[in-house]
Amino acid sequence: MSVQSSSVTPREMPAWRFVTDRWLPPVILSVITLLAWEAVVRIFAISPFIVPAPSAVAEALAANWGTLLQASIVTAEEILLGFVVSVVAGVALALLIVRFDWLGRALYPLVVLFQNVPKVALAPIFILWFGYGLAPKIILILVIAFFPVTLSMLAGMESVDRSLVSLMNSVGASRSQILLRIRVPHSLPNLMAGMKIAATLSVIGAIVGEFAGASDGLGYAIQFASTQLDTPLVFAALLLVSVLGIVFYYAAELLERLVVPWAPKFSGR
C-alpha cells in the first residue's frame, strides 16, 4: 500500500476494528439475506424445483460432495491452463504490435474485428474440431480472455510520457531498449488489471465450454442436474463456480501486489 494513501491502512488500526469495519458488514448482510431467503421459501411453500432454500442447497452440496469436488478440480484445471495460455498469448501479441509498426497496423484491426465475434457461438465449433477433452475449453478461454490482456498492456505501453521517450532518445536509446526498460515495466499495472478481467472471463469460458460439450466439470454438472430437474444441485454447483471465480480473482490480485508494489492502488473498499 502506498504511503501516500489517504485511506486508513489496516496497520494503523487495531485488528478487531479491521474485522468489525471490513468484514462484519458483508457477513451480516449475507446472513440476513440467507435467513430471509429460507423464510420466504418456507412461508410461501415454494417448490425446491423453482427456488431451493439455502438449506436444500447445502444438503445437495453435502450429498454430492465427492462428485462436485471432482468436477471442481476438472474445471479449475481448465480455468488455470486457459488463463495462463491467454495471458502468454495476450502479452506476446501486445509486444509484437508495439515493436513492429507494420505488424501492428496489420493485426490491430483484425484483433478488434475478431473481438466482435460472439465467442460463445464458437464453442460448438471448437467441440467439433477438437473433441470433448481439455483442448476446446482452453481454446475457448483463450479467444475470450486474451483481448483484455492485449488491450490493457498496449494502453500501458503507449501511455509512457513523450518527454521520457525524448530523454531516452537523446542519449541514443534503441527502440528495443525503450520497449524493455521503459514501456514494458510501465505497462505492468495495466497488465495486472487486464489479468484480473481475464481471470473472471476464464471462469466463464470454462463453464461455456463445458456447456457446449463435456463429460466432466462443474458446467457439465449444472447441465446434468438441470436435465434431472435437480435445482438444488444446480445451485450447489453454481456456488462452487463462484468460489472458483473468487479464488482466481484474488490470486490475480495477490500477483499484482507482488509484481507491482510501486503502482498506485485503489483503496480496498
Binding site: S163, S166, G172, W262
Partner: peptide, 19 residues
C-alpha cells in the same frame, strides 16, 4: 551533441521510473 552526452534535459514533469 546529445549522443556525445553533452546535453542534459530537464522537463516540467520529473518523469522518474516509479519502479
Amino acid at each position: 551533441a546529445a549522443r556525445r552526452r553533452m546535453i542534459g534535459l530537464v522537463f516540467q514533469d520529473a518523469n522518474l521510473l516509479p519502479w
